[in-house]
């Protein structure tokens, strides 16, 4: 009988063990690091939540080019910021709870943001701030929707004033005021979620 009782216990324990096997990675939930299905939210991203580090070196996505520096989403930010030189201004935004800083570098005509993963920073966002810079395809602030369509085609998502071209794990976003482009953003897909 004793052996039977022990047998019941072991059987139940085995069932529980099977139930527990193969579940998600709890370490990332606690540390807030990006992981499949959930990630840390930074206070700095104006309503966007990093979801998953891509680290794809922007393969296939739209890139922004400034001088001889090519900037891809999710690429290691250290080489980019080193090549760009001293920014006009720099801001660090800590997460509400988790370790790590989102960093915002402002250069002449554009702003570059990074997100931290595993002790390194990756490019999450490039925002064109004025018409002194343009996309490599030749669209700048102040251009028309027709010019955007001429350069990028019509395969975009339109949500109110926002035109979004998706490619290679990133988004190229144009915000329009009437017919005029007022904002251009290169966005990593890690910024998916809750854009206000």
């Amino acid at each position: 009988m004793k052996k039977k009782g022990l047998g019941h216990f072991l059987a139940l324990a085995a069932v529980c063990g099977v139930l527990l096997a193969g579940c998600g990675n709890s370490e990332h939930v606690i540390s807030g690091e990006p992981q499949e299905g959930g990630a840390a939210e930074s206070a700095s991203d104006q309503g966007s939540a990093p979801q998953e580090a891509k680290n794809t070196d922007g393969a296939g996505g739209y890139v922004f080019v400034y001088g001889d520096v090519t900037i891809s989403m999710d690429e290691d930010a250290s080489s980019v910021t080193e090549a760009l030189g001293e920014p006009a201004s720099y801001y660090e935004a800590a997460s509400c709870a988790f370790e790590g800083l989102d960093k915002i570098y402002t250069y002449s005509g554009f702003e570059l943001q990074t997100y931290p993963t595993d002790g390194k920073d990756f490019v999450s966002l490039v925002v064109l701030k004025d018409d002194s810079v343009a996309t490599p395809e030749g669209v700048a602030l102040g251009d028309t929707k027709a010019k955007v369509e001429e350069r990028y085609g019509t395969d975009y998502q339109e949500d109110g004033a926002l035109l979004t071209y998706q490619k290679g794990g990133m988004k190229l976003c144009f915000i329009l005021d009437g017919d005029q482009v007022v904002s251009i953003e290169y966005r990593s897909d890690v910024l998916e979620g809750g854009d206000a």
Partner: peptide, 14 residues
Amino acid sequence: LQYDRPQSEAYNRM
């Protein structure tokens, strides 16, 4: 008010 939909499991759990 800036958030209209669920955001992050890590923060949810906290």
